[in-house]
Write a protein that binds this DNA or RNA. Structure first.
Lengths: 205, 205
DNA sequence: TGAGGTCGATAACGCTGTTATCGATCGACC
DNA sequence: GGTCGATCGATAACAGCGTTATCGACCTCA
C-alpha cells in the first residue's frame, strides 16, 4: 500500500465554497450562537486557520453569508415570475420576500442586522448583490408604471416605499410583534400594500 | 475611628438599576461587542456574580435593556405631544420614532433584533412595555379617526400598517440601505406615510 | 529537479459566559 | 438581645470563544 491519501483533497476554492455553505447551514439550523470558527471549520472538514485565510475573520464570514442570503432572496423572488398583471406580480414578489424571510429567519437577520449582539458584524453584504435585490422591486414597479396601473414617476423612490413597508412588516413579524394584532397577514400586510399601491394609482380622469 | 465602611453600601435594588443603566450606556456608546458580563460588572462597581443573581444570564440583561429601550422610545414619542391636527401629530410621532432610533441605534437593534449574531437574545423585551409603545400609535390613529380625517375602522390594524411602514424605513436606514435611493427622507419616508394615510382617508362624498 | 509561494494544521494568547464555593451582611423571631 | 436563616456578592475556576504565530506540506512553474 502506498501512502497516497484516499481523501478527495479539495481545492482551496472548493473549501471556501464549503465554508460558506456550512456557515449558512449552521446559521439556519441552529442559529447565530452556534456559528463559531471552530465549529464551522470542523463542519467543513478543515481547521480554524482556513477560516482566516479565506475570510480574514468571523466578520468576513458573516459578510459572505449575508451576501449568500441576498443571492437566495433574489432567486426566491425571481421564482415568482411575471404575468400580464404587474400589480399581482408585485403582490407575489412581496409574498416571496416574506416566505424567504420566514424560512431563513437567521439568515435574514444577518443580512439586515448589521445590528448584532455580542457579535462580529463586518461591513455587511456585497453591495452589488443587495442592490440587485432592490432592483428586482424597481423592475416590478417599472412594469406597473409602463402598464399604466401605477402613476409615472421615480420608480426607485416608489420601490423604496414599497420595500420599506414590506420589510417593516416582515421584521416586526420576525420579532414576534405580529402578536399585537390578530390575523395580521390579512388585516395588516395585504391591506397596507394595497393602500400604498392605491395611492400611487393614476388619477382617474 | 470605627471600622464602619465609608462606601455608600448600595442596596440590591439600587445595584440592579445601576446594572441596567450601565448596560444601556455601554451598549449605546460602544456597541454590542463591548457589552460583557465582566465589563458591565466593573462599570457598575460590582462583580460578575451580581449580574447572574439579578438577571440569570447575559440574555436576561439584554431583555432588561430592551425593555428599557422601549420605555425610552415611549418617552421620546410622548414628548411630541398632541395638537388639533391628528395627521400632523402622526407625522411628528413618526419623526420622533425615527430620531430615537438614529440616536440609539444599538439599543434599537437590541429591541427588535431578536436577531443577533454570536449572541444571547433571550425572550425579548417585556411585552407589556412594548405593547404600550404600540398603543401610542393606536391612540394617534384613533384620534385621527375621531376627528374624521381617517376613515373609521380597526384602529389597531391601521396602526400596525403605519408602524410596519415606518419601522421598515427606519430599519433599512439603520442597515445603510438608504444609500440605494438618494434623499430618501424626502422621497421615501414622508411620501410613503402620506400615501398610506391618503388611502385611509374618508371617501369624498 | 529544484525553488517559491500558497494554504492549512497545531498550539497558544487573552478573553468570554457561566458556575461552585464561600464569606459577609441583614432581618426575623424566640 | 442573641441567634438563626437567608439573601447577596466576591473569588476562582471551567470550557469555549476569536485570533495569531509558527511551521510543515503541497502545488506550480522554471
Amino acid at each position: 500500500m502506498s501512502t497516497v491519501s484516499t481523501e478527495p483533497a479539495v481545492s482551496p476554492a472548493e473549501l471556501r465554497a464549503r465554508l460558506i455553505e456550512q456557515a449558512a447551514r449552521i446559521l439556519g439550523e441552529e442559529g447565530p450562537s452556534a456559528l463559531s470558527a471552530r465549529r464551522l471549520a470542523t463542519a467543513a472538514g478543515t481547521s480554524t486557520m482556513a477560516v482566516y485565510t479565506h475570510f480574514g475573520s468571523m466578520a468576513g464570514v458573516v459578510d459572505e453569508v449575508a451576501t449568500e442570503g441576498f443571492r437566495r432572496l433574489i432567486d426566491h423572488v425571481d421564482a415568482v415570475g411575471t404575468s400580464d398583471d404587474p400589480l399581482a406580480d408585485l403582490r407575489r414578489m412581496a409574498g416571496g420576500y416574506r416566505d424567504n424571510a420566514l424560512e431563513n429567519r437567521h439568515l435574514f437577520g444577518v443580512m439586515f442586522g448589521a445590528i448584532s449582539l455580542g457579535g462580529f458584524h463586518g461591513r455587511g453584504a456585497d453591495p452589488e448583490v443587495s442592490l440587485a435585490a432592490f432592483d428586482q422591486i424597481v423592475s416590478g414597479i417599472e412594469r406597473a408604471m409602463a402598464a399604466g396601473v401605477l402613476r409615472e414617476g421615480d420608480a426607485r423612490a416608489v420601490a423604496a416605499q414599497f420595500w420599506s413597508a414590506l420589510h417593516g412588516y416582515v421584521m416586526l413579524e420576525l420579532a414576534g410583534m405580529d402578536r399585537v394584532v390578530d390575523d395580521s397577514e390579512r388585516t395588516v400586510l395585504w391591506p397596507m400594500l394595497a393602500h400604498l399601491l392605491e395611492a400611487l394609482a393614476p388619477a382617474p380622469r
